[in-house]
Nucleic acid binder design. Structure first.
Length: 683
DNA sequence: GAAGGGTGTCATACT
DNA sequence: TTAGTATGACACCCT
């Protein structure tokens, strides 16, 4: 088991080296640091689908837990050295892509690879990239990359012009044929083998070549076992083929360009001979689209926004584009080269790990910066969403108290009044920020701005969160301090009361109150010689008030007046509180409206960005399909007509070539589609 | 002088 | 039943 892990770890490192040679930089460290939870290997030493748990190996590497007699130990150290060289090339592009390298076929019955290919310079290698965003969804995106380093870079075209390289090989049991899958004779395998050997002869680094060759062999074995109908060809050590779950979004996405073709069943082989193909000439450029299995998609990134968010939040957007630019520079550095591409690197292109060498033929540039831009933007917005959520959570944490403060009846309720006029909070507020109601007799007593008192109660945080500037009224202290509480002895009353009911015959009493203007009730009380002020009447507890009524031998008119004064005073405070609450409610609703408007705008922008990204990805996918079809050969060795064939991604993640069926009768076809869709949904 | 805001008060319902 | 509260409505005042 340990050897198996190390084996594929080594493969990953070597493939990372290969990618670096073609300009794709893969940050293995990001993976090693635990970005993902790789799949665990159950058994088998060479499962190409196995995602090596590097995180578990990381500790053991340095500890040299590898058995000292392990023959691969040398390869391991060589790989480590090469990896360090790759790292030295520059800042690695941290990208949430997990790579596993595999798939260069081993000829089952052919001669052995006498000379291992040079993994760094002259190897003609096809590999399958397995892109896995996270381990949770197990969305693997596999693709084939053909690296012809002898030409200085990835060659995306003209593969058959130089080599008879076969990427997907036929099984021992015979050439498999599926929908569009071309038969690959063993001669092609031999051709590949010979080519690799030739390249290997020119390499100087045999050590690395051996490692790569083993990788190639292992991958090839695995791949054979993968596609063979039942009998694994790669030997007894081949692990069972893991089940590949495809993201339904990806399936849907792949079906977009050719959505009119519904038969996605990749398990039903279909001879290309039935499609007017000439198998006899299928010698070169035989590529099975089964190799181009796509089990992941760009949706691996988009739906898993959490992961992307994390990535973007930790790092600027540069690395993604740096990766893109690196590839671009590569393309520029080797303008004349042609790249042989066995099949389309779907995931790589989608993830932007390859860039095209030309505007049309280059398959690498399948994901332009626009897509990344949108994805990153989404990620950033997701971060903003998180931030907003956190702020909102924080707000919700303080909101109750804040709102309680804002809505509090401090100093207003009778309960507060019962605490007496020297209530610290009330008196402090009144004296600190307001000249006191007694000096401002025209308005509601105690209705003063108290913004200064709010920050200590968490209002500052509330303000920080608020997306809009709060109106000043928000910070008004609507807690109307009861005038009877804090200014029991100095209460004055509205001028209108004086105007309405001037008491000309109470000059003496008027002098008692100084220059203060008396309220209507106050004047009435004085007229009836009530020995209590209105504020006292209002603020005193009901028990005291009742005792007052009983113990002073008051006349019925006096008692009625006292009750009215108390009632009106209470009602006045209640009205003030009521208005305060009303204002607060209005303000809160305004804030809510503004917040919702901002959220709506943000969501609209996000939707627009997403649509743009999806559109760009869809166009890329269409281009990919055309390019793939142009590289495929039918039975007669002729390129497939993109107008007659299309790529379809089945529910199991396999990409197959499917002949476009021209609808004879539109209505019939429509019905058939519906039926097929229903059938597809049923299982 | 009109408009709008602030305030007090009343009536009413409710606790 | 009473006291208190909440709130709509109205009137008044002020700017």
């Amino acid at each position: 088991m340990q050897n198996v892990k190390k084996y594929f770890t080594e493969g990953l490192i070597q493939f990372t080296i290969l990618l670096s040679l073609i300009g794709v930089r893969v940050d293995v460290d990001s993976y090693l640091n635990g970005y993902y939870s790789p799949l665990e290997i159950n058994d088998g030493p060479s499962s190409a689908y196995i995602q090596t748990p590097f995180h578990s190996l990381r500790d053991t590497w340095d500890g040299y837990s590898v058995h000292p007699k392990c023959p691969e130990l040398d390869y391991f150290f060589a790989s480590r050295r090469l990896l360090d060289e790759v790292r030295a090339l520059g800042s690695p592009a941290r990208f949430p892509t997990q790579l596993s390298a595999w798939l260069v076929h081993q000829v089952p019955d052919g001669s052995e690879f006498g000379e291992p290919p040079n993994s760094t310079s002259n190897s003609n290698v096809s590999a399958v990239l397995s892109s896995e965003s996270t381990g949770e969804e197990a969305n693997d995106t596999e693709l084939l990359v053909c690296d012809d380093s002898s030409t200085g870079g990835p060659r995306l075209r003209g593969r058959h012009e130089e080599y008879q390289t076969v990427v997907q090989l036929s099984s021992e049991s015979g050439p498999y044929l599926s929908n569009g899958a071309c038969e690959i004779p063993k001669e092609d395998v031999e051709a590949l083998k010979c080519q690799i050997n030739e390249d290997s002869d020119n390499s100087g680094d045999r050590e690395e070549a051996v490692s790569l060759n083993q990788l190639v062999l292992s991958s090839a074995l695995e791949h054979e076992g993968l596609f063979s109908s039942g009998a694994p060809l790669s030997g007894p050590e081949d692990p069972p083929l893991p089940t590949i779950d495809i993201d339904p979004h990806w399936s849907h996405f792949l079906s977009l360009p050719v959505s009119e073709f519904d038969d996605l069943d990749p398990l039903v082989p279909q001879q290309l001979s039935d499609l007017d193909a000439d198998i006899s000439s299928a010698i070169s450029q035989d590529v099975s689209l089964r190799d181009a299995m796509v089990t992941g998609s760009i949706y691996d990134m988009i739906p898993q926004r959490s992961g992307v968010r994390t990535l973007v939040a930790r790092q600027p957007r540069g690395p993604l584009f740096r990766l893109e630019s690196t590839n671009s520079s590569l393309s520029d550095s080797s303008p004349g080269t042609t790249t042989e591409l066995a099949t389309v690197p779907f995931a790589t292109t989608v993830n932007g790990t390859l860039n095209g060498t030309s505007s049309h033929g280059a398959l690498g540039g399948c994901l332009d910066e626009a897509v990344f831009d949108q994805i990153n933007l989404l990620g950033l917005e997701g971060c903003l969403d998180n931030i907003d959520g956190q702020l909102l959570a924080g707000l919700q944490g303080i909101d109750p108290r804040v709102l309680e403060d804002l809505d509090s009846d401090s100093g207003l309720s009778l309960e507060s009044s019962s605490r007496g006029p020297v209530s610290p909070g009330v008196s402090e507020v009144s004296s600190s920020s307001s000249s006191s109601f007694c000096e401002d007799e025209g308005g509601a007593t105690g209705y003063s701005s108290e913004a200064d008192s709010l920050p200590s109660k968490g209002i500052a945080d509330y303000d920080t969160w608020s997306p809009v500037d709060l109106s000043e009224s928000v910070w008004h202290d609507h807690s109307y301090s009861s005038p009877a509480l804090s200014h029991m002895s100095t209460t004055t009353f509205p001028r209108k009361a004086i105007k309405q009911e001037p008491l000309s015959d109470e000059d003496d009493d008027q002098e008692e109150y100084g220059d203060r203007e008396l309220s209507r009730d106050e004047l009435r009380a004085r007229a009836l010689h009530v020995p209590f002020s209105a504020t006292e009447i209002v603020s005193m507890p009901v028990e005291v008030f009742l005792e007052l009524l009983e113990g002073h031998d008051l006349s019925p008119a006096q008692v009625t007046l006292l009750r009215d004064i108390r009632r009106r005073g209470k009602n006045k405070l209640a009205a003030q509180n009521c208005r305060k609450r009303k204002l607060d409610a209005i303000t809160g609703l305004q804030e809510e409206v503004e917040r919702l408007q901002a959220q709506r705008d943000r969501l609209l922008r996000e939707r627009q960005h997403t649509a743009k990204a999806l559109g760009a990805a869809g166009q890329r996918m269409e281009q990919l399909s055309r390019d793939v079809l142009s590289r495929l050969r039918d039975d007669s060795g002729r390129p497939l007509n993109p107008g007659r064939y299309s790529l379809q991604c089945g529910a199991n993640g396999r990409v197959v070539v499917q002949q476009i069926r021209r609808p004879v009768v539109a209505t019939t076809t429509a019905v058939g589609k519906t039926d097929k869709r229903k059938k597809e949904k049923k299982p």
